[in-house]
């Protein structure tokens, strides 16, 4: 395929993915908006007003970056995992596998399509947060970079999950038993300085901690982790997961007989 044909194939996949999640916006865009609004009301206003400051900011300002990041992570992941697995389940993925579209175009198309949902939900949640509080923007560059890298990382992870999944149960196991605990324990609601040395050490093995804190640094300028190390680590992880996902797609494991 020529580069222009590849571009057509790529934009077709992205449009298809965007059309899918906007068609079912009641299932994809509305629930995170309602959930996050409840978080802002309960943790930000009701409980947050009694907690006082954290990291030098009002508690609601402190949790906003974590909640935005949580929405981006879960929506980036769940979009690709459900979309790709549904395509596998209905066998409509064969439309793509039979076509001349190269594997990396398929992978990028699905990932960018899912990132669009993650980022759209992130924007919606940010707008909601502005209704409850205002917050500074310490560094646009770091904020945008960490959002894109995190969203990309979790779309790739979701893609790999979908390739290996055999049933709809298999696509809910990782979000329920891995993603949710990592996110809740990843410094969304607290600074790890509040933990004992032992649990601070344990928390440093949680990759979500680095994403949440780097994003918080981008917005508020405070962080529990080294920002450069977090960004470099994230880039390495994105490259590694992209290579794994592409290998799975090209080798046809779990996709071709």
């Amino acid at each position: 395929m020529s580069p222009s044909e590849q571009w057509v194939a790529f934009s077709t996949i992205v449009r298809k993915e965007i059309r899918r999640f906007t068609r079912i916006w009641v299932q994809t865009l509305l629930p995170p908006a309602i959930t996050m609004a409840l978080y802002f009301v309960i943790f930000g206003k009701l409980i947050g007003s009694r907690i006082g400051e954290m990291g030098g900011f009002d508690y609601i300002q402190f949790v906003v970056p974590g909640l935005i990041m949580m929405a981006i992570i879960t929506n980036s992941y769940s979009n690709v995992v459900s979309s790709f697995f549904s395509a596998k389940f209905q066998r409509s993925i064969e439309e793509l596998l039979v076509s001349p579209t190269p594997g990396y175009v398929i992978l990028l198309g699905y990932c960018i399509g899912s990132m669009c949902r993650g980022l759209l939900v992130g924007i919606v949640v940010t707008c909601l947060a502005l209704a409850f509080t205002d917050f500074p923007m310490h560094s646009w560059t770091i904020t945008v970079a960490i959002v894109f890298l995190t969203s990309m990382l979790f779309t790739l992870a979701g893609f790999i999950n979908a390739v290996f999944a055999n049933t709809f149960d298999d696509i809910s196991i990782v979000p329920t038993f891995v993603l949710t605990p990592l996110t809740y324990l990843g410094g969304v609601f607290y600074s790890i300085e509040l933990l004992s040395d032992f649990w601070q050490g344990v928390s440093l093995f949680n990759p979500v901690l680095y994403m949440v804190n780097t994003f918080r640094y981008g917005m508020l300028g405070v962080s529990d982790v080294n920002i450069v190390g977090a960004l470099v680590g994230l880039v390495v992880c994105v490259i590694a997961l992209f290579a794994v996902a592409l290998h799975l797609l090209n080798s046809g494991k779990r996709l071709r007989s």
Partner: peptide, 14 residues
């Protein structure tokens, strides 16, 4: 949409 997508997968401009 199914047909338009299939055409896109083969690189046909819209």
């Amino acid at each position: 949409d199914i047909l338009m997508q299939q055409a896109g997968f083969y690189g046909l401009p819209p």
